[in-house]
Design a protein around this nucleic acid. Structure first.
Ligand code: MN
Ligand code: MN
Ligand code: ZN
Ligand code: ZN
Lengths: 145, 145
DNA sequence: CACCTTTTGAAAATCATTTTCATAGGGGGT
DNA sequence: ACCCCCTATGAAAATGATTTTCAAAAGGTG
């Protein structure tokens, strides 16, 4: 079970890319992070420990994470792209609260199957998909504040 | 069965907004259009008949179409927002070809139901959702050519 | 260490979309 | 039709996330 650190380092080596302090710092901060975060959020988190790291480098490095497969890019329409760690190969979709911004993950094999049926009916070859449900989470839709 | 023209005009009146040549021209061109089109595409289409209409006005008017309910905004991640007429009042989702850009619409009540179940399990109140399946259409995935 | 390539940070550039602002145009009331 | 008060318009400038440029600063391989 290769961990994300080694997957990423192998990706770098395989592509003739270099292992730098910046990339290491960004990787560590990203691995520590929870949930879905924007480049800006990660940049700000890193800045406290590494004030010298530039914004562009964070952008570039997150793209590398996505290319290497250890991270996934998400665009929930909030104006900024979000990144999350790719968890053990499993695909999942999202419930997104318009009230507090909470993002709830879910997996539903029945839905996935039906999507494949739809694609098959159209002789369409799926490479990826996204299902996003917007609304209000339990907290935000409860009457008592 | 109020048509889109009257729905939009009523929306305008109700909100104290004015009926202008520009809005009429943009509406007519939009009603004539097929499928999912960008502001730019609509602007270019209109420009031949109405060279005086500005880009900003097209942006503003498409937003009004969406607000009034006669159009829907879609962001398939292509860098530009697309608009389509809200047809048949029914919700639908999309298959998007990465090869030729074709957009295929589909409706699947079973998937919708399962989405509601997922939301219910999380005590989540749905206001909207989107399901987009990316890949290759029949034409683009066929071996010949 | 040398050398060649990739990286980096800061600033400038992109690009879709939005906003500004001065002028023009609806439209209800008279 | 005339006023008057908004709202709308177009051109240009502004925005804001992301990307690119470029000269200087490392990787890393032998
Ligand atoms: Mn997720
Ligand atoms: Mn559609
Ligand atoms: Zn919430
Ligand atoms: Zn195609």
């Amino acid at each position: 079970m290769p961990n994300k650190r080694s997957i990423f380092r192998e990706f770098m080596a395989r592509n003739g890319l270099k292992w730098t302090k910046q990339r290491e710092a960004i990787l560590e901060e990203f691995l520590d992070s929870k949930e879905h975060l924007s480049t800006e959020a990660l940049y700000l988190a890193i800045r406290s420990k590494h004030p010298h790291i530039g914004y562009a480098t964070v952008y570039r490095t997150l793209k590398l994470f996505a290319e290497s497969g250890i991270a996934e890019e998400r665009d929930f329409g909030g104006g900024q792209v979000l990144y999350e760690l790719s968890n053990r190969g499993d695909h999942h979709d999202h419930l997104i609260c318009n009230g507090c911004g909470a993002i709830i993950e879910f997996e539903d094999q029945s839905i996935e199957k039906l999507q494949e049926n739809v694609a098959r009916e159209h002789q369409f070859k799926i490479t990826s998909h996204r299902l996003e449900i917007f609304g209000l989470c339990a907290k935000c839709s409860s009457p008592k504040h």
